[in-house]
Simulated scan of single mutants.
Amino acid sequence: MTKGRITREFILTQAFELASVNGLESLTIGGLAKHCGLSKSGLFAHFQSKENLQLALVEFTHHTFVSRVIDPARDLDEQRIEHKLRCLLENWLNWNHSFQGSCLFLDAWKDAQSGRCPLQAALKRTIAMWIDYLVIQIEKGIRNGEFNQALDPKQAAFELYGLYLSAHLFYSIHGKSESDRYFWTAVEQLLQRWQSILESSD
């Protein structure tokens, strides 16, 4: 890896930590340069603009999310989708709570601008990728008989994501312990419903 690439990775790592605490919009070339111990012109040479910095950070954050949330579940030898989903959810909550309870994707995404702003479009693609991944796992659970054949995978992913959004909000108001308790209670109830045999399917 070249010196320039190493410096760029260092900058993005520092930017990720700052944005996770203060929000993506808080990032400035000058502020980040000071935090990294670099000159403003030196940091600017790597990205050329604040928007390019933010876009690079979204890509960096996406890869960080995959490595922290998805990859550990992929590496499981366990074949049961339920267990894989539990691992994903645990990683997901840890991701959400890694930096003062802030999820960079959720904090930065403003849906009204998603069609006009490259940054919002990039955030939308990342969130859509994660939702699609959840749908795929639920579909696998249906195919291998873990979940009810009548289950709608997209509806199930919608409900699961709703629990995460609630946990994100409850964390900021009530703290991690209470948020986690409500989240996992709701997850258990959801999984039981997914696994139930509907009378209409008998």
Rank of each mutant, 00 (worst) to 15 (best):
A45L: 09
G145V: 06
H46Q: 07
E139Q: 09
G30E: 15
F99C: 02
F183I: 00
L85S: 04
H46I: 00
R68L: 15
E59S: 11
E82V: 12
R181I: 08
L12C: 11
V66K: 12
R193G: 03
C117F: 09
E78A: 06
P118G: 07
C117S: 13
D107V: 04
F158E: 05
L104N: 00
E199N: 12
A122Y: 03
W92H: 11
Q189M: 04
R125Y: 07
T7M: 10
E25A: 10
D75Q: 14
A56P: 10
V21F: 13
K154M: 10
L18M: 06
L12S: 12
K3N: 04
P72I: 03
K34Q: 15
L119Q: 02
T61S: 15
A73Y: 06
L76C: 12
L190P: 00
R86T: 04
N52I: 02
L38P: 06
V58E: 09
R80S: 13
V69D: 02
G145K: 10
Q14H: 13
C103P: 01
L53N: 04
E78R: 03
E9P: 07
H83M: 13
G162D: 05
L151Q: 05
L191E: 03
T7D: 06
N144Y: 07
S67H: 14
P153R: 07
E90I: 07
L198D: 05
I6S: 12
Q137R: 15
V69H: 02
L191D: 01
Q137S: 12
I131T: 11
N94F: 11
I136G: 08
S67P: 09
I131K: 09
L134W: 09
S20F: 07
A108Q: 09
I70N: 09
Q149F: 12
I81F: 00
D202F: 04
L106Q: 15
A56R: 05
R143I: 11
K110S: 14
F65W: 15
K110F: 14
R5K: 10
L123G: 02
L32R: 10
T185M: 07
F60R: 09
L165C: 08
L43F: 05
A122Q: 04
D75F: 10
L191C: 00
K40V: 06
R68I: 06
I6A: 15
W95V: 11
E78P: 00
K140F: 04
